[in-house]
Computed example of a mutant assay.
Amino acid sequence: MQFRTLIPILKTNCPIDYNSKIMSLGSCFAVNMAEKLDYFKFQNSCNPFGILFHPLAIEKLINFAVSKKQFTEKDIFFHNERWHCFDVHSDLSNSNKEDLLASLNTLIRSTNQQLAQSTHIIITYGTSWIYRNIESDSIVANCHKVPQKQFKKELLSVEEIEKSVANTIKLIHAVNPNCTIVFTVSPVRHIKDGFVENQVSKSNLISALYSVLNLPPSEMKAVYFPSYEIIMDELRDYRFYTEDMLHPNQVAIDYIWKVFKETTISETAFDVMEEVESIQKSLSHKPFNPNSESHLKFQSKVREKITKLENQYSFMKF
């Protein structure tokens, strides 16, 4: 008897391998997947401008990077003894104005290079809800704990998201026409918006992506990976959530990664992934007697494995 439904997912025509250069952008679920890629020592970078939740925030920063925008004093503001930028995450905020501007402009240059060099870009959308700064009439990526009365909350329509997704693809392919873009919707539930509102938000994202990506992947080099659907329809149980009942727990993340590996990573990489995992587990091993002969031999064998892989793949560092 079958006690759950399995989502059929076709294997990608452009799989990831150890020659691939991957960039992950978007919500905290993008970070979960990037951590897996990092663990297995793929060439991966994640969220240079911090976690971003909605399509317009991601599109805007990709546009900045492609056009090599220079941030100036008019793009930042002072609040709670720190300098912030409404277009980036608060992790980048700084007590020194010049340092913030310098770091933002350095990130623009490095992101431009990463967009041009990436073979795969993974974009995870979290929500359709956005906040508009009433004074400037501009949509922000992060409110930085500025009083809520200074913002107006809005829901992006399916049509607005479609336009943003299409423009994001166009911007990336303008500097890197051969790059494969993998879109996904975060399974994290944004209950602060409301239960019905969260469902509407996710529905708008999924509807827009379905509409834009309905062309054959060979024509667009953009595909959809159903991480949201795997949680909602395949796992479908609160035991796959953390204590807050909103975020997928490690078991769920591991399962989604397993499906991602089977459908999006080349089988030619599997043997190397096993070697990397073996080394990672060995490095986390805590011996009872660090000075014992057996442990010293164990360490020597691990170093041999590391040296072999690092000689084979110069970008790998353990």
Rank of each mutant, 00 (worst) to 15 (best):
K297R: 14
R239P: 09
S266P: 08
L246D: 03
F270P: 05
F225V: 00
F240V: 01
I265K: 04
Q199E: 15
V302S: 08
M316S: 04
L213Q: 09
V188L: 08
E219A: 03
P290T: 04
H295S: 06
V185H: 00
E197C: 10
A252P: 13
N311K: 06
E293L: 02
M232A: 12
S203W: 13
Y228N: 06
R239D: 06
E304S: 14
T263E: 01
M273L: 07
K261I: 00
F195S: 10
K286G: 02
M316E: 02
K305A: 14
E275V: 00
P216I: 04
L235Q: 04
E243V: 11
L235H: 07
Q199N: 15
P290L: 05
K192S: 14
P226S: 08
R236D: 12
E304M: 12
M273K: 06
P287L: 14
S201G: 07
F183M: 08
V251F: 10
K258I: 01
V302D: 02
Y224C: 08
F270N: 02
Y241G: 07
E277P: 01
L215P: 01
T184G: 08
S292W: 09
I231Q: 04
H285A: 03
S314Q: 14
F315I: 05
A269L: 07
N289E: 02
P216T: 09
K301G: 11
D233L: 09
K308M: 15
M273T: 03
S186P: 10
K308I: 14
